[in-house]
């Protein structure tokens, strides 16, 4: 499954510019790269969130491929219904085209309110790809914490206060939860690693049955980073092993990127304004705790990968 940048760049991606996502938003890059990877027409679904509200403002739509938005927590069930319709109509000879189905949700619509809908759709075995663009908070409604928010992050519902220094507790490991569904394909990637992302998208689309891809995506507003720091910040997420690139094919864990030198988590956190308060002297212990969690998660993945 060789991916050629020259070929890819010539492809007409059915997602236009002119939408209202912020400059530097990771979500639009994710969608563009993923739709570019598809070799067949895609029927897409989108959960309520930034991606939806910024790309479908009636009477305009940035989507030049069929799209459905239903509600916040049900994009998996919605696309599963569309996929069921496709199977039914195809079996009855009423549709003949090869069509792929993709659902896009943010971490709010995926980790939290939409987790049941996602779990159900994956268990039922629909031939669909669920994509979570994880920017680590409810950015659409103004940066409220989610269960994907990293520990210590300053959000509007976990503010860095004088008593409580940002979000308490670590994030949920959703990708591992999805791997535990024993579906054909689960992966974690970022748009900073375009080849990794495109390859994984192709695999997910080609596999027979459900696939889940978790994509770390920046939110310049929520992360308090400059518009042009999207790719560099995402690279640091993988180089610090905050966001390992891996895939799980039929229960087989595979690491796709092993940094030559694992950088301290502070290097990823330092450029992000949402972590600024953690660098104060009194919060130093939190940085240590965060580093310890990153290390534990990384070791866990290595164990899974090496089968130890």
């Amino acid at each position: 499954m060789a991916v050629n940048l020259r070929e890819l760049s010539k492809k007409k991606v059915p997602f236009t510019g002119g939408h209202r996502l912020c400059a530097g938003c990771g979500a639009s890059i994710v969608v563009r790269q993923m739709l570019a990877a598809a070799d067949h027409p895609v029927v897409a679904g989108v959960a309520t969130g930034c991606l939806e509200v910024a790309t479908t403002i009636y009477p305009y739509s940035a989507w030049e491929t069929p799209l459905i938005h239903n509600a916040f927590e049900n994009v998996a069930a919605t696309i599963s219904g569309a996929e069921a319709a496709y199977r039914s109509l195809k079996a009855q000879g009423k549709v003949d085209k090869e069509i792929k189905f993709m659902a896009f949700g943010g971490d709010g619509g995926t980790y939290d309110i939409g987790l049941q809908s996602l779990s159900g759709a994956m268990e039922r075995g629909h031939n669909m790809v669920y994509v979570c663009y994880d920017n680590g908070a409810y950015m659409n409604t103004g940066i409220q914490r989610s269960s994907a928010t990293p520990m210590g992050a300053d959000t509007s519902t976990s503010p860095a206060g004088s008593k409580i220094p940002g979000k308490p507790g670590h994030r949920k490991n959703l990708t591992a939860i999805m791997a535990a569904h024993n579906i054909p394909y689960v992966a974690q990637t970022t748009p900073a690693h375009w080849r990794d992302l495109v390859t994984k998208t192709k695999k997910a689309l080609e596999v027979e049955g459900p696939a889940f891809i978790n994509v770390l995506a920046t939110c310049p507003r929520g992360w308090r980073i400059p518009d042009d720091a999207t790719i560099s910040t995402l690279r640091l997420a993988t180089d610090t092993c905050f966001w390992p690139l891996f895939e799980v094919e039929y229960g087989e864990w595979k690491l796709n990127y092993r940094p030559r030198e694992k950088k301290p988590i502070e290097e990823w956190m330092k450029p992000q304004g949402r972590f600024r308060h953690l660098f104060r002297e009194e919060n130093k212990h939190l940085l240590e705790e965060i580093q310890a969690e990153v290390d534990r998660n990384w070791e866990q993945i290595l164990r899974f990968v090496d089968g130890k």
Binding site: N74, A85, Q116, E123
Partner: peptide
């Protein structure tokens, strides 16, 4: 094609997707 979904919320969500797909 009969989908035994995991809740009524998903039942209605799925039939919305299915009906939108014709």
């Amino acid at each position: 094609v009969f989908e035994r979904v995991e809740s009524e919320h998903s039942a209605m969500s799925a039939v919305v997707g299915a009906a939108a797909a014709g």
